[in-house]
Computed example of a mutant assay.
Amino acid sequence: MIAYELSRALSRHYFLSPRKLFVSAKRAPHLPCRDKPLHQLPEAEFIAALRDYNGTPHDVLANEELMGIFLPVLRADFCLSESYRFDAQERLLTDLVLFGGRRDSLVPEPDLLAWKELFEGACEYRQFDGDHFFIHSQRDELLAGIADYLSMSLERGTV
Score class of each variant (00 low, 15 high):
73 V>L: 13
66 L>M: 13
92 L>E: 00
86 F>A: 05
106 L>A: 12
75 R>M: 08
80 L>D: 08
91 R>Q: 14
103 R>H: 11
99 F>M: 02
74 L>Q: 01
91 R>A: 13
101 G>N: 02
80 L>T: 11
86 F>H: 14
96 L>D: 05
67 M>Y: 08
65 E>W: 05
80 L>R: 05
74 L>M: 12
78 F>W: 12
99 F>Y: 15
74 L>Y: 03
101 G>D: 07
92 L>W: 02
101 G>F: 04
70 F>D: 14
68 G>C: 09
86 F>G: 03
67 M>Q: 06
107 V>F: 10
95 D>S: 10
69 I>C: 08
107 V>N: 14
92 L>G: 01
70 F>G: 04
96 L>P: 02
107 V>R: 07
84 Y>H: 12
90 E>Q: 15
78 F>T: 03
92 L>R: 00
79 C>E: 15
69 I>S: 04
106 L>V: 08
82 E>C: 00
71 L>E: 11
105 S>K: 12
65 E>L: 10
83 S>R: 09
104 D>T: 00
90 E>Y: 02
66 L>V: 08
107 V>W: 10
79 C>F: 14
98 L>P: 08
99 F>Q: 01
90 E>V: 09
103 R>G: 08
107 V>Y: 10
107 V>L: 13
66 L>S: 10
91 R>I: 03
94 T>L: 05
67 M>D: 12
75 R>G: 09
107 V>K: 07
64 E>S: 13
101 G>M: 03
87 D>R: 09
86 F>Q: 06
71 L>I: 11
102 R>A: 12
92 L>N: 00
78 F>V: 06
95 D>F: 00
72 P>R: 04
86 F>R: 01
87 D>N: 10
64 E>D: 14
69 I>Q: 07
64 E>G: 06
83 S>N: 15
87 D>G: 11
100 G>W: 01
70 F>N: 04
98 L>W: 11
92 L>S: 00
67 M>I: 09
82 E>V: 02
93 L>P: 11
77 D>Q: 04
98 L>G: 06
102 R>C: 11
95 D>L: 03
95 D>I: 03
64 E>C: 07
77 D>C: 05
76 A>F: 05
89 Q>R: 15
79 C>K: 11
105 S>I: 15
83 S>I: 11
95 D>Q: 07
86 F>W: 13
82 E>W: 00
72 P>A: 05
98 L>A: 09
103 R>P: 06
107 V>C: 15
85 R>G: 06
93 L>W: 07
75 R>A: 06
74 L>E: 00
87 D>E: 15
74 L>W: 07
103 R>W: 08
92 L>K: 00
85 R>N: 10
76 A>V: 08
96 L>F: 09
71 L>N: 06
69 I>P: 00
64 E>W: 04
92 L>H: 02
70 F>V: 05
101 G>E: 04
73 V>I: 13
65 E>F: 09
105 S>P: 10
95 D>E: 15
81 S>K: 06
97 V>M: 12
101 G>Y: 02
91 R>M: 10
96 L>R: 07
94 T>A: 01
90 E>H: 14
94 T>P: 02
83 S>M: 14
103 R>T: 14
